[in-house]
Amino acid sequence: MPSGLAALLDDVSIIARTAAASVDDIAAAAGRAGSKTAGVVIDDAAVTPSYVTGLSPARELPIIWAIAKGSFKNKLLFLLPGAILLSEFLPAAIIFLLMAGGLFLSYEGAEKVLEKLGGEKHGKTVDDVIEDPAQFEKERISGAIRTDFILSAEIMAITLNELTELTIWWERGIALALVAIAVTVAVYGAVALIVKMDDFGLSLTQRSSELAQAFGRGLVAAMPKLLIALSLIGTVAMLWVGGGILLHGTHELGFHGLYDAAHGLESAVADGLGPAGGFFGWLTYAAISAMVALIVGWIIVFILHKVLGLGHKPGAEGAAH
């Protein structure tokens, strides 16, 4: 009996250690996969503040919370089960989903660049007269959740593509859920801080301390510049990630020319610049990726808007971002 009990306890110990190692593997895989989504996350965080711009400050946090809840639903209720089923029964399709996401990111980034260069804007903007604030707010939330769904799908696809070492479906599910929760909390937590920064600054200007007043005025003055910087960073990140996905995807599908050329130039820069070579090599590849995305995106914009006549016209429902 004692030997049997000892054997049982030993088996339990082995199972416990295996489970602990499995949890560590899942956490590590989730961390690595999450880092690959950085560009999309940056874009998501940069895009979202535009959905509360021009609305009552009292409604900013409720709107962000409504969008965040929609984002959790997008990732955990819709995309997560689909990603698990896909990885189990049709893993070869993941690369095509990634490519579709890369094309979308390229299109969105190129359209933003064209708008900044004076091109036609698509969709209602905050410069338009808001006749029904409640309806406009509802449209803003719906538009944000739709955009989040697409960006979330890309985040989940990128994450899934990085979880090849997790061979059991529930391990992939836990890793995907960890990334989904962490990304959503990080994005919308950061957005909440950003959009309330000016309110916090205004409250500081009411303090008796001259230092607090000066800091508050600085925060208020910095807010417009921060939003502009976020928009720029978001566009660059969108193009960098979209182009990188396209380069990697074409390589995976057997078309190696662009991918090999980009990595060849990256290696040449890295080898020629000594200690700083690693950073500038990465920067070179990111720049090439962004240029590829910009060219592909402009082609898509031309086909959709000029050839097919698709896309929102000014005054259409929804909010441009």
Results as ranks from 00 to 15, higher is better:
Thr37Cys: 13
Gly31His: 12
Gly101Leu: 12
Val52Pro: 01
Leu117Met: 08
Ile94Val: 13
Gly119Pro: 04
Gly34Ser: 06
Ile67Trp: 06
Leu85Gln: 01
Ser87Val: 02
Leu117Ile: 00
Pro49Cys: 02
Phe89Arg: 05
Ile26Trp: 09
Leu90Cys: 13
Trp65Ser: 00
Leu86Asn: 04
Gly102Val: 03
Lys121Ala: 09
Pro81Phe: 15
Val40Ser: 03
Ala100Ser: 08
Val40Lys: 05
Ile94Asp: 12
Lys112Thr: 01
Ser50Lys: 02
Ala110Leu: 12
Gly39Pro: 06
Thr37Lys: 07
Gly34Tyr: 02
Leu117Ala: 06
Thr53Phe: 15
Val41Gly: 01
Arg59Gln: 08
Pro81Asn: 13
Gly39His: 11
Pro49Thr: 00
Glu60Leu: 06
Leu80Met: 04
Lys69Cys: 04
Asp44Met: 12
Ile64Glu: 12
Gly109Pro: 03
Ile84Leu: 13
Ala68Ile: 00
Phe72Ala: 01
Thr48Ser: 06
Ser35Leu: 15
Leu98Asn: 03
Leu105Cys: 01
Asn74Asp: 13
Ser35His: 14
Glu120Lys: 08
Pro57Tyr: 05
Glu115Val: 11
Gly39Gln: 10
Ala110Arg: 08
Ser50Met: 10
Lys116Ile: 06
Ile42Ala: 10
Ala27Met: 12
Gly101Trp: 15
Ile42Cys: 02
Val41Thr: 07
Phe78Leu: 14
Leu114Cys: 01
Leu85Cys: 00
Ala33Val: 13
Gly54Phe: 04
Ile95Ala: 13
Asn74Glu: 07
Lys116Tyr: 14
Ala30Leu: 10
Glu60Ile: 00
Leu80Ala: 03
Phe104Lys: 00
Gly34Arg: 07
Val113Lys: 02
Ser71Thr: 07
Pro62Met: 09
Glu120Ala: 11
Leu114Met: 10
Leu79Trp: 09
Ala28Ser: 08
Val113Tyr: 09
Glu111Tyr: 05
Pro57Glu: 08
Pro62Arg: 09
Leu61Ser: 04
Arg32Gln: 04
Asp24Arg: 13
Pro49Phe: 09
Gly119Phe: 11
Phe104His: 05
Lys121Asp: 13
